[in-house]
Simulated scan of single mutants.
Amino acid sequence: MYYAVIFTSTRTEIEAGYAEIAIKMLELAKAQPGFMGVESARNEIGITVSYWDSLDAIQKWKTNMVHLEAQENGRTTWYKNYKVRIAKVEREYEF
């Protein structure tokens, strides 16, 4: 069992600084204890799913100071809206 944080978003037209922060957030997340991986796609909406070994790890990521700053920039500059969902993954399979 592990957890998925599902982040869906609609972007504004503003691109300045977004790609650099996205790379920085990925590098920072990978360094966080409990981080297990990430998948992402963007068309009309963006969907990023990050995987974590515990709710505690998710909470620590959510309150990371650098991540908090990026979240604020997202709300004021890069996103029209977003939603975060946290789900428990009880089973997985793949082809």
Score class of each variant (00 low, 15 high):
P33I: 08
E27Y: 05
F7P: 03
Y82I: 05
F7A: 09
K88Y: 04
A19M: 05
L28W: 01
A29V: 11
V5G: 06
M36C: 11
T10Q: 09
N64V: 11
I23F: 03
N64P: 03
G34E: 02
Y93D: 10
E13Q: 05
G17P: 00
G37R: 03
N64Q: 13
Q32E: 14
V84M: 13
K24C: 09
W78F: 07
G74C: 03
Q71T: 04
K24R: 13
L68E: 11
T8Q: 07
K60Q: 14
A29N: 13
A22E: 02
T48S: 07
G37I: 07
T12M: 05
I6E: 07
K24A: 15
K24H: 12
E94M: 15
E69A: 13
A31I: 06
T77P: 01
A19Q: 08
E13K: 00
E15P: 00
V66S: 13
G74N: 03
R91Q: 12
E92V: 14
E92P: 04
N43G: 12
N73T: 03
A29P: 06
V5N: 03
G17F: 01
E90I: 14
V5Q: 10
E92C: 10
Y3L: 05
Y18C: 01
F35A: 04
V84N: 07
E20G: 08
L28N: 02
M1F: 06
